[in-house]
Design a protein around this nucleic acid. Structure first.
Length: 281
DNA sequence: ATCGTAGCCTGGTAGC
DNA sequence: TGCTACCAGGCTACGA
């Protein structure tokens, strides 16, 4: 559920508080949070202790800390992951999974209720493990025309395409619904039926909504999406579609509807984003 | 090759 | 009150 803007908020915090620091100790409190680290928790700890953190990077919803031996600590927040910076003697949160002690006496904490996320050490920067993750819209190398071209070659619905991290990364349910609302597109519209101009505008909306959300510190619905200081962003007040079932559309006043889609929910304005009548529409 | 979906996870809440 | 069922949903693995 933390999507690109929320992950970037976390990356900025790590950049400020963790980069330049050395790791003095690591504790894995729940091995499930490092299950993607093949060699296991003790190896995870050994690969971190004594290393200095040289950079904090991100692609899509993945972020990683670059260590001074060229390896990196790949991190995904999943649905409920948090990276917090605090004093080691601060109260232990309920779902504390990993602690990383730093040489300035502070502690990086990975807190995760649902354990969809986790950490793993990769040999490289960028991690080869995320080679399949496409550039995200905030990446300087992001190529709109390329994404539009690839998208229009797919045989699927437009929201499915937006959520496919191998096509464009960083988009989750919230910003997909927001971009589709801005573009006045129904989630089931065929990618093949989109005109180049429509698809280009959709990608532009994805970029814009993420940029605006980032400027407000990200979106927060419950206390789960927070920066490294545990604070929430404010973009939820700016949402036009997501989570607004029964509210009037900010554009036309029709009542926003929620519909099951891909085993989750999709929000749209039934007037601005009408259901396609055939495959092309 | 491409597309669609089951399952991983926990806690809050709706419903009985 | 206490129980069950459901929902939140990013990602991987796997089947069609």
């Amino acid at each position: 559920m933390p999507e690109l803007p929320e992950v970037e908020v976390v990356r900025l915090g790590l950049d400020e508080h963790v980069v330049g620091r050395a790791v003095t100790a690591v504790e894995v409190l729940d091995p499930r949070s490092v299950r993607r680290h093949g060699p296991g928790p003790s190896d995870f700890v050994a690969r971190l202790v004594g290393r200095r953190v040289d950079a904090a990077r991100r692609r899509g919803k993945y972020l990683w800390l670059v260590l001074d031996d060229g390896s990196s600590v790949l991190t995904h927040l999943g649905m409920s992951g948090q990276a917090l910076i605090c004093d080691p003697d601060a109260a232990t949160p309920r779902h504390l999974r990993i602690t990383v002690d730093l040489d300035d006496g502070r502690q990086l904490r990975f807190v995760d209720q649902r354990i969809f996320g986790g950490m793993a050490v990769s040999d490289t920067d960028p991690p080869t493990e995320i080679a399949h993750i496409a550039p995200d819209p905030l990446d300087p190398g992001f190529d709109v025309a390329r994404v539009v071209s690839l998208m229009r070659r797919r045989r699927t619905g437009v929201k499915r395409a937006l959520l496919d991290q191998t096509l464009v990364s960083g988009v989750g349910n919230i910003y997909a619904d927001e971009a589709l609302w801005r573009a006045r597109l129904h989630y089931a519209r065929s990618t093949r039926g989109l005109r180049i101009a429509e698809a280009t505008e959709l990608i532009r909306h994805v970029h814009d909504v993420m940029t605006e959300a980032l400027a407000q510190g990200g979106t927060s619905f419950d206390a789960l999406y927070v920066n490294v200081n545990g604070q929430s962003g404010y973009f939820d007040r700016s949402l036009n579609a997501y989570g607004r079932e029964g509210d009037p559309c900010d554009r036309c006043g029709a009542m926003i509807v929620r519909e099951p889609f891909m085993n989750r929910s999709s929000y749209r304005c039934p007037a601005c984003q009408p259901r396609p009548r055939n495959g092309r529409w």
